[in-house]
C-alpha cells in the first residue's frame, strides 16, 4: 500500500514539475499574440485548443511509449542501478534549471538555441490552420524534451508499478497536469486577461518559477532515491 502511494505521489510530482517548465506557455503566448492580430477570436480559440491537444497528445504518447519500452527492456520496472543514474540526472537538471533554464536579464528567454526559438516564433506567426497549431503544440512539447524526457521516464516507471486499472488513469492525470498551465492560460485569456498581463506576470515571477522548477526536480530526485532505490534494496 505504501509503495502504491509513493508511486502515485511520484507520478503527481513529475506531472507538477513538468507543468512548471515554460516552453509550452511561451509558445502558446506567441500563438495567441500572432493569431489575435490576424483572426477573429473564435478562430484563435480553435487554434489554441488544437495547440493544447497537440501538446497533450505528444505528452501522453511519450509516457505510454516510455512505459512500454521500460516494460519490454526491464520486464517490469527499472532496477535500482539504473534508477541511481536517473537520480543523478534529476539532480543535474535541478542545477541546470537554477543556472541556465532562463537566460539572464530582463526577459523570459529560455535556454533554447536562438535558431530553435526563432523557428518556433516563426511557426507561431505562420500558423493558420488547426492542423498547424496541433503540430505547433507537439513541436513545443518536443523542443523541451531535454528537460522532460527524464520526467517522462520516472513517471512511466512509477506507472508500471501501479495496478493495471490505475495505469491508464495515471497517464491521463500526468498529461492533464503537464498541460494544466496552458489550459489555465486559455481560461485567463477568455476571462479578459491580455497577453501583456500574462507576460508581465511571467517576467515578475521568473525567479520564483525558476526556484519552484529546480526544487521540484530536486525533491523528485530525493523521492526516487528514497522509495525506488533505497526502498528497493
Amino acid at each position: 500500500m505504501i509503495m502504491i502511494r509513493s508511486d502515485l505521489f511520484i507520478v503527481l510530482l513529475t506531472g507538477f514539475v513538468h507543468a512548471t517548465l515554460q516552453l509550452g506557455i511561451g509558445a502558446l503566448l506567441l500563438l495567441y499574440h500572432a493569431s489575435l492580430g490576424k483572426h477573429v477570436k473564435r478562430k484563435t480559440r480553435e487554434l489554441v485548443t488544437n495547440y493544447i491537444f497537440g501538446n497533450a497528445f505528444l505528452t501522453a504518447l511519450a509516457v505510454s511509449a516510455a512505459s512500454f519500452i521500460i516494460f519490454v527492456i526491464f520486464q517490469g520496472q527499472m532496477n535500482p542501478a539504473i534508477l541511481t543514474i536517473v537520480v543523478g540526472i534529476l539532480v543535474a537538471l535541478a542545477i541546470s534549471v537554477w543556472a541556465f533554464y532562463y537566460k539572464w536579464g530582463k526577459s523570459t528567454e529560455l535556454w533554447l538555441p536562438k535558431s530553435v526559438a526563432n523557428f518556433i516564433n516563426k511557426r507561431a506567426e505562420l500558423t493558420e490552420s488547426n492542423t498547424e497549431s496541433f503540430a505547433l503544440g507537439m513541436l513545443a512539447c518536443f523542443a523541451e524534451a531535454p528537460f522532460t524526457m527524464i520526467l517522462v521516464i520516472v513517471a512511466a516507471n512509477s506507472i508500471l508499478a501501479l495496478p493495471t486499472g490505475l495505469q491508464i488513469l495515471m497517464v491521463a492525470i500526468y498529461t492533464l497536469l503537464s498541460v494544466l498551465p496552458i489550459i489555465i492560460m486559455r481560461v485567463a485569456v477568455r476571462k479578459g486577461q491580455t497577453i501583456v498581463d500574462i507576460q508581465k506576470w511571467r517576467l515578475k515571477n521568473k525567479n520564483f518559477l525558476r526556484v519552484i522548477s529546480g526544487l521540484g526536480f530536486f525533491v523528485l530526485a530525493i523521492f526516487v532515491l528514497a522509495f525506488k532505490v533505497i526502498g528497493a534494496v
Binding site: 499574440h33 523570459t108 528567454e109 526563432n118 518556433i120
Partner: peptide
Amino acid sequence: YKNRGKII
C-alpha cells in the same frame, strides 16, 4: 515592442 523576440 520592448519584449518582441524575448518571450521564449
